[in-house]
Amino acid sequence: MSSPSSLPGAPGAASSSGAEAPVTPSAATAVPSTDEGHPHRRLRSFVRRAGRTTTGQSKAFEQWGPQFLLPFREARLDVDAAFGRHAPTVLEIGFGMGEATAHIARVRPDDNFLCCEVHEPGVGALLKRIGEQDIRNIRICAHDAVEVLQHMIAPQSLAGIHIFFPDPWHKKRHHKRRLIQPPFVRQLVEHLAPGGYLHCATDWQPYAEQMLQVLRAEPLLANTSGSPEGWAPKPDYRPLTKFENRGLRLGHGVWDLVFRRA
């Protein structure tokens, strides 16, 4: 088994608003930007983040990596072969340290979870959880989710997409780097099967409001929320992480949005 540092795309780091429940910004096309010095920067599914892989995480790469890590390829993924079964497949973009991912996979054993994350310690941590908790319905691609979506995922093939706590890019001049933007949402929707859902969550209200605006403007999506504000109740399958519980104790809000493809 190759070392963590030799994994495709591994030396990156998914960013998020907190250590326990990250998800990354990920626009699935080469969207031009006008950032100074980077006239053709494209939005990615991650930003670089420091972190050390522990001994336990390194052992998890060696022990569980061959079974649960999928190499990135510029070719369609045979999902049934990758999971060893035919089942609805949910794509998760950025999972941080994998706490929520492991929980969701356990409470939804009949679904497949294809999870993208480039932060080595996070990948190692989820592999460790997979081994310790005997979770069999997760596969990890340690690569930029933008390219995974473009090359490996067939159109209209996903039952759902999870994007939890993406980096909010607080400064106004950085808003262009946010994940949830119209071109990327359109690409996400094109990979959802009819009736498939997109579930986003954030703890940053201005970003939540932007997400809601963008998702409402996508003609192929319908909001599942019946509330006038448009926010969805937290689905039972999404757990409260330690980071999120800490924020709630401090009075911070969390906003869920669940939209479904027509």
Rank of each mutant, 00 (worst) to 15 (best):
I163S: 14
L220Y: 10
A201M: 14
S225G: 03
S157L: 00
Y237H: 14
C200T: 13
D167E: 00
Y197W: 12
P233A: 11
V185W: 06
R173C: 02
F184A: 15
P228F: 07
K171L: 08
P168S: 06
Y207L: 11
L221E: 05
S225T: 04
Q213E: 15
Q181K: 13
N223I: 05
Y207W: 06
R186M: 09
L158M: 04
E218G: 05
F164G: 08
H191G: 01
A217P: 08
R238Y: 12
L179D: 14
N223K: 04
P168I: 06
E209K: 09
S227P: 04
Q205H: 14
Y237M: 09
L221D: 11
V214H: 08
A232F: 15
G226M: 11
H162L: 14
L215D: 09
L158C: 04
P183N: 11
P233K: 10
L188K: 06
K176Y: 02
P233R: 08
M211N: 13
P182F: 05
E209N: 04
R216P: 01
Q181I: 14
E229V: 01
P168E: 02
I161L: 13
V214S: 01
E229F: 07
M211R: 13
H191P: 02
K172M: 12
I161C: 02
L158N: 03
S225D: 08
P166C: 04
P168D: 03
S227I: 00
R186D: 01
E218L: 06
H162Q: 04
K234A: 14
Q210E: 11
Q213S: 14
M211P: 09
